[in-house]
Amino acid sequence: MYPTENEKAVIEAAEKIMVNTMARYDPSHDGYHVQRVRRTALKIAENVSIPPDMLVVELAALLHDVLDKKYVTAAEAADPYAFFLPFFESMASQHGINLVEDGRGRLIAQIIDNVSWSTEKKLKEKGLWTKWHDVCVELHCVQDADRLDAIGAFGIMRCAAYSTATDHTLHAPPNDPQQPSSATQHFHDKLLHIRDRLKTTYGQRLGLKRHQVLLDFLAAVDDEYDITTPA
């Protein structure tokens, strides 16, 4: 039965790393975001046809944003396995789970390195997308969970929070100089495309409702803006 007592100890250790790190980031990428991704990833993992390694899913979900390129340098994010290796090694001596020897540490790092939307886009554009990306169930569980938190009610709040943290306007009309980088434009550039790129059947089911929340919100924005626009 997952998790065992030893697995719980490893999970708690990873959670501490996450909490300490995410405390330095803005509210769009804080510990609450990670906890939501963790819970959703585990729920997806319970509902996929091929049972994944639950420990890999949970650890990858907990650590997936520690090296987010929006908050750390490219050099820091270049080698997730090297970064997390001291943690992986310490779990063997402290809790009897050798993530290095059994290969799960490398898989966790590989998931972390490939989970983001922008990474997937770049790999496909460069022809570097592989069969592993298409078949790794653990990757799909974490990817879908992370992307689901970018849409729906929490996605809307996170988009506004990140726009504020990066000093981008929330909404600007067409042809306005600030419009291309506004929060509402980000819906059209990325968020509205997420539903169709979710990889698991369960994630796709969750995505339907959250996608509709985005559409309803944008309709409300347009409606309210039209009222305040001079005739």
Rank of each mutant, 00 (worst) to 15 (best):
K131S: 13
N98E: 07
D65T: 11
M91Y: 00
D113E: 14
R106T: 05
D68K: 12
Y71R: 10
V72I: 14
D79F: 11
D79S: 14
L139I: 00
K69S: 12
V72Q: 09
N98S: 08
A78P: 04
P86Q: 09
L107H: 10
D134A: 14
Y81R: 02
E120Y: 01
Y71F: 15
K122A: 15
Q94F: 04
D68T: 08
L128W: 09
G127E: 09
K131Y: 10
D134L: 08
E76P: 07
V66Y: 03
K70L: 13
D65A: 10
V66D: 01
W129Y: 15
K126I: 04
K124Y: 09
T119G: 04
M91F: 00
K70I: 06
M91Q: 14
L123D: 04
A82W: 09
V66A: 06
L85H: 09
C136D: 11
N98I: 01
T73F: 13
V66S: 04
C136H: 02
S90L: 05
A109I: 07
V137G: 08
E76V: 13
V66T: 09
L107T: 15
D79W: 11
D65Q: 09
I112V: 15
R104C: 09
W132F: 07
W132Q: 07
K124T: 06
E76R: 12
Y81T: 01
K124F: 10
D65K: 08
L85R: 13
V100N: 06
K124L: 09
D134H: 03
V72F: 11
E120V: 01
P80R: 08
L123K: 15
M91G: 00
L85P: 02
W129H: 07
D102C: 13
W117N: 09
F83M: 06
G105F: 03
S116V: 01
R106C: 04
E120T: 05
P86A: 11
C136V: 06
S90E: 10
R104I: 11
K69I: 12
D68P: 05
F84E: 04
L99W: 06
A77T: 13
F88M: 04
E120P: 00
V72D: 09
I108S: 03
V72H: 10
V135F: 07
F83Q: 04
L128H: 13
L123H: 09
V66I: 14
L123Y: 11
W117D: 08
I108R: 04
S118L: 13
H140P: 00
N114T: 10
G96V: 02
K121M: 13
I111Y: 06
D102V: 10
G127K: 08
V135M: 07
K126T: 13
